Simulated assay, not measured.
Amino acid sequence: MAADKDINPIIKQVLELGPTVAFFLIYLRLRDDTFNLAGSEYSGFIVATLLFVPILLVAIAALWGLTGKLSRMQIFTAFMVIFFGGLTAWFNDERFFKMKTTLVYGAFAILLGIGLLRGRSYLAYVLGDVLPMRNEGWMILTRRLCAAFTLLALANEAVWRTLSTDLWVKIETFGFPIALMGFIMLQFGLLQQHMIEPGQDED
């Protein structure tokens, strides 16, 4: 198995967040346009979605080449983007791409919920090596994050079904990620007492 490689954190952030920002900027440029491709008329949103897929794949390939690894979340998200981006283009229906966000957040909530029903934290399995924390802390964080993903999935359904595409793109690009990041940062502060200091036993 190849060893993990160090990468400049700024480059890593650009590769992780860049495709989403690129989609937002492309959408702003194309949102009022229509395109005739292979005899079918496509909105600017759908063309922006089609352009987003290869941009994301290039960024993921660059991350893989620079770091020597990809997280399960990155692989799963990439699969969902490609799959629902393809459905969006095939059926010429932007609803598929909008539903993708609901299914991604919903899948995370379900996976964490399955772990909780088994008395385990799948978060600890994924992040335990980089974030030492006692099992009690992992279980608390998993329960809270499971609820957060559920709320985000429901929120996305409400947003894309009731608001304009413009608002959905803005909330999808900035609102949901900022809300999730803020929630996670708040939890780590609240769970500081469960952190394991270097050299300290888990118990």
Rank of each mutant, 00 (worst) to 15 (best):
D6C: 01
I7G: 02
N8F: 06
I10Q: 05
I11N: 03
K12A: 13
Q13T: 14
V14G: 13
E16V: 06
L17I: 07
L17G: 04
G18A: 02
A22F: 08
A22E: 00
F23Q: 10
F23A: 10
I26F: 02
I26K: 05
R29V: 11
R31I: 03
D33W: 12
D33S: 15
D33G: 03
D33E: 15
T34E: 14
L37R: 00
L37D: 04
G39T: 12
G39K: 00
E41A: 05
Y42P: 05
G44N: 06
G44Y: 07
F45N: 13
F45V: 12
V47D: 05
A48C: 04
L50E: 04
L51N: 00
P54C: 04
P54F: 05
L57D: 05
A59R: 00
I60S: 03
L63Y: 10
W64S: 06
G65L: 14
G65P: 07
T67Y: 06
T67A: 10
T67D: 10
G68M: 06
L70P: 15
S71Q: 14
R72I: 14
M73Y: 09
Q74M: 13
I75P: 01
F76T: 09
F76G: 05
T77R: 00
A78K: 06
A78C: 14
F79T: 11
F83L: 15
F83A: 15
G85P: 11
G85Y: 03
G86L: 06
L87E: 01
L87T: 01
L87G: 04
W90F: 14
F91H: 15
N92W: 02
D93M: 08
F97W: 13
K98C: 06
M99D: 09
K100M: 15
T102H: 00
T102N: 08
A107M: 14
F108I: 04
L112N: 09
G113E: 09
G113W: 12
I114A: 10
G115T: 14
G115R: 08
L116S: 02
L117Y: 06
L117K: 14
G119E: 05
S121G: 09
Y122W: 12
V126T: 13
L127K: 10
L127I: 11
L127Y: 15
G128C: 13
G128H: 10
D129H: 03
V130M: 13
R134K: 15
E136K: 11
W138L: 00
M139F: 04
M139Y: 09
I140W: 02
I140F: 05
L141A: 13
T142A: 07
R143T: 05
R143S: 12
R144W: 10
L145V: 14
C146K: 12
A147Y: 12
A148Y: 02
F149W: 13
T150G: 15
A153V: 11
N156M: 07
N156H: 12
E157N: 12
A158M: 10
V159E: 09
W160H: 07
W160P: 03
L163H: 12
S164D: 04
L167R: 11
W168K: 01
K170M: 11
G175H: 00
G175A: 03
F176Q: 02
F176H: 04
I178G: 01
I178W: 05
I178H: 06
L180P: 02
M181K: 04
G182E: 11
F183C: 06
F183W: 15
M185P: 02
M185R: 11
G189N: 14
G189C: 10
G189A: 05
L190Q: 11
L191R: 05
L191K: 11
Q193P: 00
P198F: 02
Q200T: 06
Q200Y: 03
